[in-house]
Design a protein around this nucleic acid. Sequence first.
RNA 1: UGGGGCGUCGCCAAGCGGUAAGGCACCGGAUUUUGAUUCCGGCAUUCCCAGGUUCGAUUCCUGGCGCCCCAGCCA
Length: 553
Amino acid sequence: MSTAETPGSSNFIRTIINEDLHSGKHDQVITRFPPEPNGYLHIGHAKSICLNFGLATEYQGRCNLRFDDTNPTKEEDEYVEAIKQDVAWLGFAWGEQPLFASDYFAQLYRWAIKLIEKGKAYVDSQNAEEMRANRGTLTQAGTDSPYRNRSVEENLQLFEKMKNGDFADGSHILRAKIDMAAPNMNLRDPAMYRILHAQHHRTGDKWCIYPMYDFAHGQEDSIEGVTHSICTLEFEDHRPLYEWFLKELEIFAPQQIEFARLNLSYTVMSKRKLLQLVNDQHVDGWDDPRMPTVSGMRRRGYPAAAIRSFCERIGVGRNASWIDLSILEDCVREQLNETSFRRQAVLKPLKVTITNYPHDKVEELEAPNHPQRPEQGSRMLPFCNELWVDRDDFMQAPPKKFFRLGPDREVRLRNGYIIKCDEIIKDDSGEVVELKCSADLDTLGKNPVGRKVKGIIHWVSARHAAKVTVRSYDRLFNQENPDKAENYLAALNPESLHVSEALVEPSLLAARGGETFQFERVGYFTVDSKDSGEGQPVFNRTVTLRDAWAKMK
RNA sequence: UGGGGCGUCGCCAAGCGGUAAGGCACCGGAUUUUGAUUCCGGCAUUCCCAGGUUCGAUUCCUGGCGCCCCAGCCA
């Protein structure tokens, strides 16, 4: 477990834990991260993972990875494998084996019988529509089921038959007998077990009844000795139920604590919607670099440390909050600036010919891998009289503040000479196709005397450059909150992916999948692990560099 | 309109009766062969509003207002 990060600021959960430790209520901290294996993990889950595993580490306790697999119709092994990989990649460990709610099915079944015997649960034979109709509304009490007062014996028999598979799906259901008039809807005789003749990813067809979340989660926590069961705010209304089951079952009662889920601007977070983006092929898969999934961010090139740092920075509270994407991006840049080697790459090429440099001469110019860290070494850049520079670094009629190429303007070639633009070549349509420049050959590694050249631009040798595919990503949605749109799909950004060919320094051809480089003055780019071939790297733009000039414009 | 929550700077977020931390964003300025990084400096006399208690309230009380969640045999 690699959590050398800062302890972080105070939050209400740390306060509760500290109190519990000081009062002697607990002498250790046990948490859990309980995903349902019905989709891939996203940045919202990452917040929960960092919180739960982070707390366990901080208090030298334990955090269980427990799959909440109580609904066989939606859960698959593919998801449990992906989730395990994501949690591990984020830097957390869960002991020898992950846990599963399905491991507790037998115990849960015995507990259901116990409640029936106590007269606290009954088999209802209304269908789903009748149950809904009799549940009442937010302002009106519900009505008791006509089956509510079946005898314990009859309930026991019926429930056993449910378990044995004697009934069709939906024909009967086990309910807790609480209060059909409770103002909290969750207490109006909530469902405990439903009949589901479905293949479970782990138990196969052993069971044909499955516990509902409410009848499973608290008991799972209890079995595992979880001290603090941390979940999101929507479950707040379920807490009385959570506590009711534990009390009626007379078993250890963990404390449920709710926090606000993460909302990120310009993205959606619901698994249903993410699944639809995948199924309808609006994206390339769960791990498409535009997805807010852990696997998508990993493929995009976000370091795990950046995600951890992000989760620490945003804090934990109970306000429904919207986090600005810029915070995540700042965390990513913070990490990548430290670790990434610098390289030169031209994304929008414009030809430059150095008129006073010999046609047949080639020089190797030394360039540091990381200017702030000379110990990281250097690589050699081939230089000749034909270069590519970026179109954005040239203007025919530049404003005074444009510190780049323009008629008669001088500029430093990064890691190379100072050149001056003498002549502009255009094609028939008037488009600039080439610049003729002269180099000051006495400016390698030193400044010219008598004048100052402020601008620096990146370049590659046209005779040596390699051509690679670059995928530039933009936000997946155009609206700050896609959920507010009539249809969130309409808020999809049609320009979220831009594929282009870039000309890069030859050393980049050896880049391996997952490696990230800073293309100087442009951004951070990560070699795609799926689509890159041997000697044919495909670069995903992880994040751009900050661009003060872009702001000035 | 039933129940449960939440309201501190543009976005997050500390604070828990003693006179508003921090981060992101933003605005200045310094250094710089990345208009990057780094570095300095600025950025809420005010804590949803109105009353009240108190020597003193963002913190306590009362009343408003606003926002979020709940009527799956999903989790």
